[in-house]
Simulated assay, not measured.
Amino acid sequence: MFMRSQYTINKDFKYMKGYRDRHGKLCTLVKETEKTFMVDKSPLEIIDDSIVRIGYNLKGAMETSKRLLGNIYHHPVLVCPIQRIVLFPTQSAKHEECIWFNPNHIKRTTSHKRQTFITFSNGKTKIIRAKLCSFNSKLQIAEQLENMTRENRVS
């Protein structure tokens, strides 16, 4: 699989997950609507690099999310206010098995053997180890953050 040194999250981004390479370095598997590739950075580095490109940083995005959404676990982050890209984690962002999803590409979620079956905008699917109600709650919170930041920007 092709390894990139850099990546900026864009409107085609569906999800990403961290993986250790053969040397033990944390890299990232990125899935876009039409492409799959590895990036020689951790998921948090990719998110931070993408946010820095538009003038702020991951720490600030997380603080904004906490202020707007209150005391919840696993805050989503607004990565690009121009393209309205919000990402949400399946678990703690520091956990290596965390998967970051873009809610814009999630078209349907269903329960499958106590896991979540996700159908994406391009018709592809993925099963993750998470209860449907937990995953859907995180999806709704991410959509809520996107709505709140859109409303604040217009006001």
Results as ranks from 00 to 15, higher is better:
residue 82 I to D: 14
residue 21 D to I: 09
residue 134 S to L: 08
residue 151 E to Y: 14
residue 82 I to F: 15
residue 57 N to D: 09
residue 3 M to V: 15
residue 124 K to M: 05
residue 89 P to I: 00
residue 42 S to G: 11
residue 59 K to R: 14
residue 151 E to K: 15
residue 50 S to H: 06
residue 151 E to P: 07
residue 127 I to A: 07
residue 98 C to G: 07
residue 2 F to S: 08
residue 100 W to A: 00
residue 34 E to Q: 15
residue 11 K to I: 10
residue 119 T to G: 06
residue 139 L to M: 07
residue 72 I to R: 14
residue 14 K to C: 10
residue 137 S to M: 09
residue 45 E to P: 11
residue 155 S to I: 11
residue 21 D to E: 03
residue 17 K to N: 05
residue 5 S to L: 13
residue 7 Y to Q: 08
residue 72 I to Y: 09
residue 14 K to N: 05
residue 48 D to Q: 08
residue 148 M to A: 11
residue 18 G to N: 05
residue 131 K to V: 01
residue 94 K to S: 14
residue 77 V to S: 01
residue 152 N to D: 02
residue 133 C to P: 09
residue 2 F to E: 08
residue 113 K to D: 09
residue 86 V to Y: 02
residue 91 Q to I: 01
residue 19 Y to A: 05
residue 69 L to Y: 12
residue 80 C to V: 03
residue 46 I to H: 07
residue 120 F to E: 02
residue 60 G to Q: 13
residue 82 I to C: 14
residue 124 K to R: 08
residue 109 T to V: 08
residue 133 C to W: 10
residue 100 W to R: 06
residue 136 N to Y: 07
residue 112 H to G: 04
residue 59 K to V: 13
residue 88 F to P: 01
residue 65 S to E: 08
residue 100 W to Q: 05
residue 115 Q to R: 13
residue 82 I to T: 15
residue 129 R to A: 06
residue 154 V to N: 14
residue 82 I to G: 11
residue 74 H to V: 00
residue 98 C to A: 14
residue 134 S to G: 06
residue 91 Q to L: 02
residue 98 C to E: 01
residue 45 E to N: 13
residue 124 K to H: 07
residue 59 K to F: 05
residue 145 L to I: 06
residue 121 S to E: 04
residue 113 K to T: 11
residue 19 Y to P: 04
residue 125 T to D: 05
residue 16 M to N: 00
residue 153 R to Q: 09
residue 105 H to T: 08
residue 87 L to T: 03
residue 33 T to N: 10
residue 3 M to E: 15
residue 66 K to D: 00
residue 127 I to W: 07
residue 145 L to C: 10
residue 70 G to D: 08
residue 80 C to I: 01
residue 136 N to R: 09
residue 75 H to N: 12
residue 148 M to H: 09
residue 132 L to V: 11
residue 5 S to K: 15
residue 63 E to K: 15
residue 149 T to R: 10
residue 52 V to D: 00
residue 31 K to C: 03
residue 30 V to Q: 04
residue 120 F to S: 03
residue 155 S to N: 12
residue 37 F to E: 03
